[in-house]
């Protein structure tokens, strides 16, 4: 099997989607002539031409909104936001305009568009370029949110997102772009939105995660004495209640591993839903492993502590499984 950079999975998904569907266009800053700030659009301009591969000024509101208008009138725009924080200056067009188009037109108008962006911490980009921000979109009726976690899920989710009839936000953990992985492209491969996958079967505890935390969860599971089942949620909204609930019924324990502070993390919804649905099957209180309630620190040692490590996750789960009581997070232990 061939080894590829994960960023190539983005490129391949865009390229194949553009070849298969002439209504797909891509827009963003420096994505055409320069091949993209993260080199995930390299060569698209030469293959598909400047009418479909479009460099924009630094005007996020204009090109996000143009994507909405183009989508309503028959194109399938894929917008690159570079760092997900940049959508902050264009949020209205997505969360208020695109998300309500179908509803307000009573189903007659739709916005089949994709916003894709790099997201997350781990590389020293500082507090304004390191967040996941899925909570800005998750829970907005009318929007879907997916998070990629390796080459295969990147390809499968992006293809599904582009084919989806409604607006979808796809977050791509930036730390993964420069990772190499064995993967054979299959242009028919899709991951249906709303469907989670069991990344590793186990019997003692269900560890629900997504994005770059999938690797952390899998590494923790390797070293742990507990037999951990890792569920990669893949789509954060709408999320796959059934896969998670069935897993928790098998294991009797639920832990979420989130790259977000507890207050805005998706785990709050997962834990409350499963606690309601599977209350009688839980051997221990559900537990959430999250970031502390603080901006992402720049300095290397601090950012490393800030993000959950495999050792920390394994330790938290060991305490939960052995005591059936939720452990404290590191920042409360230290105090």
């Amino acid at each position: 099997m061939a080894k590829i950079w994960i960023r190539q999975a983005v490129l391949r998904a865009l390229d194949d989607a553009m070849t298969d569907d002439p209504s797909v266009i891509v827009m963003g800053e420096d994505i055409a002539a320069a091949g993209g700030p993260f080199k995930v659009t390299e060569g698209l301009l030469a293959t598909h031409g400047p009418e479909r591969v479009i460099d924009t000024p630094i005007s996020e509101m204009a090109f996000m909104g143009a994507a909405v208008g183009a989508a309503v009138c028959g194109l399938k725009p894929v917008v690159e936001m570079m760092f997900i924080e940049f959508i902050g200056v264009a949020l209205d067009q997505l969360t208020t305009q695109a998300a309500t188009m179908r509803y307000l037109s009573r189903g007659r108008l739709t916005t089949p568009l994709v916003v894709r962006a790099s997201a997350g911490a781990g590389q020293g980009f500082g507090c304004q370029h390191s967040q996941m921000l899925d909570h800005w979109f998750r829970g907005t009726p009318g929007l879907k949110v997916a998070v990629t976690s390796n080459a295969r899920t990147t390809y499968g989710l992006l293809r599904s997102a582009i084919e989806d009839p409604d607006p979808v936000v796809v977050l791509e953990p930036r730390v993964l772009y420069a990772e190499r992985e064995e993967y054979e492209f299959d242009r028919n491969y899709r991951i249906p939105l709303g469907q989670a996958e069991i990344a590793r079967p186990g019997s003692d505890v269900t560890l629900v995660t997504c994005g770059a935390m999938r690797r952390v969860a899998l590494a923790a599971a390797e070293t742990s004495h507990a037999n951990i089942e890792v569920v990669d949620l893949l789509t954060l909204w709408p999320w796959d209640r059934r896969t998670v609930a069935e897993s928790v019924v098998r294991t009797g324990r639920l832990v979420t591993l989130e790259e977000a502070p507890a207050g805005s993390g998706w785990g709050g919804d997962v834990v409350s839903s499963i606690a309601i649905e599977a209350f009688g099957r839980l051997k221990a209180p559900p537990h959430r492993i999250t970031l502390p309630e603080a901006p992402v620190p720049y300095s290397g040692a601090l950012e490393a502590r800030f993000l959950p490590s495999p050792a920390y996750v394994a330790e938290q789960i060991a305490t939960l499984v052995s005591t059936n009581k939720p452990p404290l997070p590191w920042w409360r232990n230290a105090a």
Binding site: G88, G126, C127, H129, P295, Y298
Partner: peptide, 23 residues
């Protein structure tokens, strides 16, 4: 050391934290 290259600051000389978001 919490900010990094994109976030320099010094209120003593009027410099608010430099912003990493255009505009």
């Amino acid at each position: 050391g919490l900010g990094g290259s994109m976030h320099l600051v010094e209120p003593e000389v009027g410099l608010l934290p430099t912003a990493a978001i255009v505009g």
